[in-house]
Write a protein that binds this DNA or RNA. Structure first.
Lengths: 109, 109
DNA sequence: GGGCTATATTCGCATTCTGTAATATGGCTA
DNA sequence: TAGCCATATTACAGAATGCGAATATAGCCC
């Protein structure tokens, strides 16, 4: 594979990696409803504040969320609309897998 | 976070994780054009056969690709159409990030 | 400035992920 | 059946990731 292509796929993978964690998916999903500060999301996730802060840094680095300072707080917001399609795709695959598993079970019985 | 929700996000994350690697993105992208056997994809990726085989196993486990035996060969194929939207989303975020970086550079000069 | 609050960063440790070499499986053909 | 081919699996080393505790940074109010 040419170096150029490899770099392109690595750039894409960096964004995909940011999406590849249950907590980050939760945070993104929550941010689709409304902007939130770190404390709020820390409660939501039920994890240490430093952990949530790091997850948010990863999302921000990938360009998936934006931050705005409000006094001592950092308010995070969604930065790309296309996530709706991404979540829908995940659901679609999940449903398809479930259907296939059911078909297998019925075959056995 | 309720256990139920956590499990839902973990199921989604499992699929997202399968997407979160440059080589797997390459393979999926290639499979969008045509079905391929392992040897073909091994050449394409320029990696060891065992490595490619493992990446394919991950994609299969996530339900993103399917396999069909053809004699001694395994022919892999895309199993979900919604990947088009996913790739488009990655491109969109990449373009947006690039635009933002350019804006920053212009601000400095 | 001193103390409080909200975030970010660093550190150490456990877990998971990647890639290759070596080995196993399984179909095909002579 | 013996040997060859394509693929899958195992074993293992090195890299990356995830977590919380501790620490650093920075704004705000007295």
């Amino acid at each position: 594979m040419p170096v150029r292509s490899r770099q392109l796929y690595e750039a894409r993978a960096k964004i995909a990696k940011a999406l590849a964690h249950p907590v980050r998916l939760l945070l993104l999903d929550a941010l689709r409803d409304k902007d939130m500060c770190v404390m709020e999301m820390t409660k939501l996730a039920g994890l240490d504040q430093s952990t949530v802060s790091k997850h948010l840094a990863i999302l921000k680095e990938a360009g998936l969320v934006g931050v705005q300072k409000a006094g001592p707080m950092s308010v995070y917001s969604i930065r790309c609309q296309c996530l709706d399609g991404f979540f829908a795709c995940l659901e679609s695959v999940l449903r398809q897998n479930l259907k296939e598993q059911q078909a297998l079970v019925e075959l056995e019985s």
